[in-house]
């Protein structure tokens, strides 16, 4: 196994661990964190792909940057919804 294949397998493993944790966890915050772990797995795959040539591939790195930004936005939205789900009935936002 080359170093490249090893790293790709690592990325996929992180994705699978994140997805399984996301599906099995009961706690909502834990599920949001697991989703972030899963997305880190995909980002690792993209970053490893960027190192294939002699020079780093800027396109793949740009994709990772955008992906991280999107995941941050989604995490924010998810946490806001978690707060509303777990708010006591009388405190729920209008």
């Amino acid at each position: 196994m080359t170093r490249l294949e090893l790293l790709l397998a690592l990325g996929c493993a992180v994705l699978v661990v994140g997805l399984v944790a996301h599906l099995l966890a009961r706690d909502l915050v834990r599920r949001v964190v697991a989703l972030n772990v899963a997305s880190a797995g995909v980002m690792i795959v993209l970053l490893v792909l960027a190192t294939r040539g002699t020079e780093p591939d800027p396109v793949a790195q740009a994709l990772v940057l955008t992906g991280i930004v999107i995941m941050a936005a989604i995490t924010g939205l998810a946490l806001a919804l978690v707060r509303r789900v777990e708010a006591p009935e009388d405190e729920e936002a209008p």
Binding site: L35, A38, L81
Partner: peptide, 14 residues
């Protein structure tokens, strides 16, 4: 329901 939808949709996107 919104959070559940978000979770499924984000897994699909990943």
């Amino acid at each position: 329901p919104a959070l559940r939808y978000l979770f499924v949709a984000v897994v699909g996107s990943l």
